[in-house]
Design a protein around this nucleic acid. Structure first.
Length: 437
RNA sequence: GCGAUCGUAGCUCAGUCGGUUAGAGCGCUGGUUUGUGGUACCAGAGGUCGUGGGUUCGGAUCCCAUCGGUCGCCCCA
């Protein structure tokens, strides 16, 4: 018979198993749970949007011809002939829903979501083809207070995850449309003047995406990039005022921030505030949480001119930074003394579990093997279950397996009450159980 | 799309100037120890050395190709 070949996992996808020493699945869940708790503190409503959309949703919002759209999306034609794309981000889908579901009536809308996203990229540390993000958006608020609120929430989230140490909020303004155009023109002029000193890649960027030269990693570009003009001189009074209100709000909330005049965005719809929480603990992927104001996006999608601001954070990246969590250990492992006691053990275990105790029992094995297995596991205690000489249901006894296990005897007594009348021998500490019903 | 690096048991790895039957620890399976208890003892299963080709009397080991993982570049919504 031909050997069946197991299909390999798709490149850039991950499988996460809980209960392992790395506890990655637990850390992942912890990040999500913390986000869900914090977003409620700020009054962000949970929103659910589809995992796939018509390709146009992302193509229009991102700009038809960018690399991202042409090369880095999971796009396919479905059976009905429609072009469908797996969401590479949350913002476009939420914006589409804002328009098509009439959510304008709730503006300003504060929403949060999380889930899987898909990008056709080469995987590396902290980058996957299916990955997961937390997302928060405020739609329909033009005030800098919205930017502040999102940043304060992000700051609290990172603090509550215990990873704010070594993570810095870096902040910039891209100005309003007028400021941005003036700055862009000045940058192009500056880079044209030093064209011969730029890397080949940056010469290419000059035509495609000149702002991106500013945050180039190539050391050859740094002198020219560092001497390029900041946006400050090109800001309109309005744009400057907006940015000042954002930074003043952060100061008022006690959120630490750093100005990074080299922080830019690849897409044209960004206005005013752009920010990233960065760290050096994730290899080449420094950004842990990033976002900004995208006042032009909803209009790009055919909606009314609507101001909006939001951020997203990679759950895997956050999970890599949080401490390894203590895995919730089994409290009681059933240890039937012989095969005849297995059914009694099954019943007792079901009673204890209904009462909220974390119990487990091996599927097979002699009492010795069961004991060995329990001893090697992380379980706190064993519960031996043996037949009684009398007509009693069973005799049970607690056995410590780990030093420093949290007390359980009191809860055990209460749990037993629900199904047994029992006596506890003060000397041997054995419980003799008699079924109530 | 480009580059570097790594692929040996379920896991972590040893073995590689070419030479008997490819090893260890952990895990797994079975057994022994008549037991308030041991991180015991014994045995066993499990490998096309990623895949294909080449050089050679002989390849896990050298060469080429290919696939896959990891990390980086590009890109970063």
């Amino acid at each position: 018979m031909a050997k069946i070949e197991t299909p390999r996992p798709v490149r850039g996808t991950q499988d996460m198993l809980g209960g392992t020493p790395e506890a990655f699945a637990e850390r992942f869940a912890h990040v999500v749970a913390t986000f869900d708790r914090v977003r409620r503190l700020y009054g962000f409503q949970r929103v659910e949007v589809p995992v796939f959309e018509q390709t146009a949703v992302f193509a229009r919002s991102l700009g038809e011809s960018t690399d991202v759209v042409s090369k880095e999306m999971y796009t396919f034609t479905d059976r009905g002939g429609d072009s469908i794309t797996l969401r590479p981000e949350f913002t476009a889908g939420i914006s589409r829903a804002y328009i098509t579901e009439g959510w304008q009536q709730y503006a300003p809308l504060k929403v949060a979501t999380h889930g899987p996203l898909f990008r056709y990229e080469r995987p590396q540390k902290g980058r996957f083809r299916q990955f997961h993000q937390l997302d928060a958006e405020i739609i329909g608020a033009a005030e800098p207070g919205a930017d502040v609120e999102l940043l304060v929430m992000a700051d609290q989230l990172l603090k509550e995850l215990g990873i704010s140490e070594g993570v810095t909020l870096t902040l910039n303004t891209l100005g309003d449309a007028e400021s941005r155009e003036a700055w862009r023109a000045a940058l192009v002029a500056h880079f044209m003047g030093h064209r011969d000193q730029l890397s080949e890649e940056s010469v290419d960027r000059l035509a495609r995406n000149p702002l991106r030269i500013l945050d180039s990693k190539d050391p050859r570009d740094r002198p020219v990039a560092d001497s390029a003009p900041d946006i400050d001189a090109y800001l309109t009074d309005e744009a400057r005022g907006f940015f000042e209100k954002v930074t003043a709000g952060l100061d008022a909330a006690g959120v630490a921030w750093e100005r990074n005049p080299r922080l830019v965005r690849g897409l044209d719809y960004y206005r005013h505030t752009a920010f990233e929480f960065v760290t050096d603990r994730l290899g080449a992927q420094g950004t842990v949480l990033g976002g900004g104001r995208y006042d032009g996006l909803i209009e790009n999608l055919g909606g009314p001119s609507t101001p909006a601001v939001g951020w997203a954070a990679g759950i895997e990246r956050l999970a890599m930074l949080v401490e390894v969590l203590e895995i919730e250990a089994t409290e009681l492992v059933m240890l039937p003394d012989s095969d005849e006691d297995v059914h009694a053990a099954i019943f007792i275990q079901s009673v204890l579990r209904r009462a909220g105790l974390r119990c487990d029992m091996a599927f097979s094995g002699s009492s010795k093997k069961r004991y060995d297995k329990a001893k090697r596991s992380s379980a706190y205690r064993g519960l031996t279950i043996s037949s009684a000489d009398t007509e009693a249901f069973a005799v049970i006894r607690l056995r410590d397996l780990k030093a420093g296990a949290p007390p359980v005897r009191k809860r055990l007594r209460t749990a037993l009450d629900s199904a047994f009348s029992w006596t506890e021998n003060a000397e041997t500490r054995e419980f003799t159980l008699v079924r109530k019903f």
